[in-house]
Design a protein around this nucleic acid. Structure first.
Lengths: 67, 67
DNA sequence: TGCGTATGTAAAGTATGTTTTACATTGCGG
DNA sequence: CCGCAATGTAAAACATACTTTACATACGCA
């Protein structure tokens, strides 16, 4: 699953730690999401989209062959 | 997290087993999702929304106090 | 040079999502 | 009444998401 977290975070001028605080997750989780190590849970995906004022579909793009 | 899976499935005239097949998950997973036992993974949430021709936001509604 | 901030990563542990097997209950059509 | 389809549920096993602690690297700046 592709995501625009890195791009959106930088537009807001935030560090990974800043974003983690706002999302109430660890900095390592933000780092892992940005680096595509795994996908967020659905509740976390909602929190991320809302924080940036976007829909889930605007932040996350499933790859072609994905579920 | 609230979801409209049960309602949407019935509108399509499908059994839980039918839906499970289309989503490539087990019938128990569909049952658990409909009964609100847990939230789907983000990829599965996308698959569900796409199957019904809706956005994630149209199918899933985070509760007020949720992440 | 040396310090502080930001980022990447790893290992161990906990929590959540999903599958498989199996069984119980309900309701409907014969 | 009987049989069958649909649904609910449980336990064990496994996969994925997330936390904590800890350390490494890179960069800018006093």
């Amino acid at each position: 699953m592709r995501n625009r977290i890195h791009e959106l975070r930088r537009q807001g001028g935030w560090s990974q730690a800043d974003l983690a605080t706002r999302l109430k997750v660890s900095r390592q989780t933000v780092n892992a999401l940005e680096r595509g190590r795994y996908d967020p849970s659905l509740p976390l995906a909602f929190a991320i989209a809302r924080l940036f004022g976007l829909t889930i579909e605007e932040v996350f793009q499933p790859e072609e062959d994905e579920a």
